[in-house]
Design a protein around this nucleic acid. Structure first.
Lengths: 201, 201
DNA sequence: GTATTTAGGTAATGATCACTCAATAAATGT
DNA sequence: ACATTTATTGAGTGATCATTACCTAAATAC
């Protein structure tokens, strides 16, 4: 074993835990949006001094971008786990809908979605805009893929094109995050998911 | 005729056109969010000096609230017209879905939805938060009402409760605004609407 | 050892932030 | 005419904004 890539980094090692910093940034940006969160607030929440923050992330959008990438990775991990344990395409979609109902309820719902927050200010981003667009299209493709699986395994019978179904599901997922942030995703959540699944018939 | 309420106002008349000011504010806040728009930007766009703006609206949230109220009134007007000309409940829902597809496409889609922008920063609002919550619940009730009408006239056959259907439709409408802002509401829009209407079957 | 590299910490940058105040202007009421 | 009311204007408020420069600290490389 040559342990490639494990060689010691050159300068002084980082003292702060990047994962913690990004998680705090995720929470702040999710609940208030990019512009509403100041560097002061970020330094207070992360306990990382402003100089270190700028050395590590160049600027505010750089920090936002890294937080967004971590947010996406975490969510995609959750989703992969849900997809893996479901027995067919329809069950996978049902699992995703249930996940987003949960994400859009209670405290987590009020916190909000970093993707939605980012899209709200997408016009002012350079690099972060690419991340947002990329994630939207990857999510759309993933949904279309699952719909195709469901059509193949017989659990999804709609004659609609997988891309159209995926578009509608994508819209539903992010719509839940908006409505849930305002605590307006109320009522029988099982009935809500069952109803949404009708677009697969 | 006594022309009640038409008596001349007491002091110096307003020089600026409030409708124009609010429309500019709607555009700015919709596309960037509340915190991202500065007073400077608002004075430049409206050509109203900062002092006059503050005399008229007290503070930035006051201006945002008035803009939001106008935005809601305009949209509800559009919606009322669409509902009035449709022959049954299902056609009314179809009309609303088509409206939001249009709102979520092209330049208007990129501009974004002021409701969604407001919800994104709802935690920092006092008065504006009530407007947002109120509009969400009124829209939810309107949707449930139209679904009930469709059930009564036979054009909507689902056994799901109108409230659940309304919740799903509400989620779809705002989801379209999010996805549309990122220019990701693509593909066959007629097929999209047809598919969404399946939740009424 | 010394040089190099990277991070931490702090004070300070100019710009912009939301907001206020006092003076002036233009209308109505009596 | 004169008092009252409301709007306009523009300078000025302190606070906060994102960002940088500079010095020190801690690691590796030679």
């Amino acid at each position: 074993m040559s342990d490639v890539g494990t060689d010691k980094p050159r300068g002084r090692p980082r003292l702060f835990d990047e994962v913690v910093v990004l998680d705090r940034a995720i929470d702040l940006f999710s609940s208030s949006g990019f512009s509403a969160v100041g560097i002061n607030e970020l330094t207070r929440a992360t306990r990382v001094k402003v100089g270190s923050l700028y050395k590590a992330y160049q600027d505010k959008e750089g920090l936002f971008s890294k937080a967004l990438e971590r947010y996406i990775a975490l969510r995609e991990g959750e989703i992969a786990a849900i997809l893996a344990q479901a027995e067919n395409g329809r069950a996978r979609i049902a699992g995703l809908l249930r996940l987003y109902v949960r994400l859009s309820s209670g405290k987590e719902g009020r916190l909000g979605c970093l993707m939605v927050a980012g899209i709200g200010e997408i016009s002012k981003f350079s690099f972060a805009g690419n991340i947002l667009h990329g994630q939207l299209s990857r999510r759309q493709m993933l949904l279309a893929d699952v719909v195709s699986q469901g059509k193949a395994d017989g659990s999804i019978t709609t004659v609609a094109e997988p891309n159209v179904v995926a578009n509608l599901l994508l819209t539903l997922l992010y719509g839940m995050r908006v409505v849930g942030k305002a605590e307006a995703l109320i009522g029988d959540t099982d009935a809500f998911v069952d109803l949404a699944l009708k677009v697969l018939d």
